[in-house]
């Protein structure tokens, strides 16, 4: 690993100032589970590393009208958080699949998103839950829907002087407060190995049902395009319809059309398209079962 300067800000403002000063030569580090291996292998050689560990405002998970997840909340926190497990199940699923327990104790949701790998396990669930990214910069705060956060492989809307602060999302309706609305979500990925692996394909589905019909469907795919993507045509095909196995199978077929996979060392494009169909079917079925549960 190359030598570097370390900055330890204690507030979001200090951090943004440090980023503004050092620009693109600086990298932020939270859990370090993505950055450190990249630095050790010489893939990135930042002159300055800004440690986010001392910024209290980035930590924690707050449950209210919706969910606010601090950028430095760990995958393990989300995996074990009672409210996330109850109402934001796709996110709990995704968080529980990152790395291994040891990795999840360090890895943060902000790191998972800002690393911007197409395979990030927490991105599709947060997209399916319609999360927004809260971003701090020199001119203050702005919000970007997570669906618009990723701009390419390892690229996001974040400017060199900006910092992801939190993710906020509305609460999916659950009985009794939502009357007849019920909602459920699921994230499933395929990996050749059970742990310590990267999604060959990951699919998150969140469905809201009223009187037996789907009123909202959100399906997001990982590892099938330069960024995590919504399967929009599949979502539209489900809304207003009863979620029968036939409808679900049709949506799974439409989801394949949203996938623009490449062939690489983790899987061929053919296999990825095959998996999108299988996992979309399975996540929709699981999401529906959870909505009814």
């Amino acid at each position: 690993m190359r030598r570097f300067e370390m900055i330890l800000p204690s507030s979001v403002d200090e951090c943004v100032k440090a980023l503004a000063t050092h620009g693109a030569g600086a990298k932020t580090v939270a859990g370090g589970t993505d950055l450190l291996p990249q630095m050790k292998n010489g893939l990135v050689k930042p002159a300055v590393v800004v440690d986010l560990g001392g910024i209290a405002a980035l930590k924690g998970v707050t449950n209210g009208a919706g969910l606010r997840v601090g950028a430095c909340a760990t995958a393990r926190e989300l995996e074990l958080h009672p409210e996330v497990r109850k109402r934001y199940t796709a996110l709990a699923d995704g968080a529980a699949l990152v790395g291994s327990v040891q990795v999840r104790n360090l890895a943060t949701v902000g790191g998972n998103l800002c690393n911007a790998a197409p395979s990030a396990d927490m991105a599709p669930p947060l997209m399916a839950l319609e999360a927004e990214a809260v971003i701090a910069g020199p001119k203050g705060e702005r919000r970007v829907p997570l669906s618009a956060f990723f701009t390419g492989v390892r690229q996001t809307v974040l400017g060199a002087d900006e910092l992801l602060v939190a993710l906020v999302m509305p609460a999916p309706p659950v009985p009794p407060e939502a009357g007849l609305y019920v909602s459920g979500g699921s994230y499933i990925r395929h990996t050749p190995r059970r742990e310590l692996d990267i999604a060959v394909v990951g699919v998150a589905s969140q469905v809201t049902v009223q009187n037996g019909r789907c009123v909202k469907a959100r399906i997001a795919l990982a590892s099938v395009a330069p960024t995590p993507v919504h399967a929009t045509a599949a979502e539209r095909a489900l809304e207003g319809q009863p979620l029968t196995p036939e409808r679900i199978e049709q949506a799974a077929g439409l989801a394949v059309e949203a996938a623009k996979p490449i062939s690489d060392q983790r899987g061929s494009a053919d296999f990825r398209r095959h998996l999108v169909r299988v996992l979309t079917r399975r996540t929709l079925t699981a999401a529906l079962a959870r909505a009814r549960a």
Binding site: R193, R194, E195, Q265
Partner: peptide
């Protein structure tokens, strides 16, 4: 080599 790490060169783990 396209998989020069133990992430993509998959040795089995105890979980497998």
């Amino acid at each position: 080599l396209t998989n020069p790490s133990l992430l993509d060169y998959r040795k089995l783990t105890a979980a497998d």
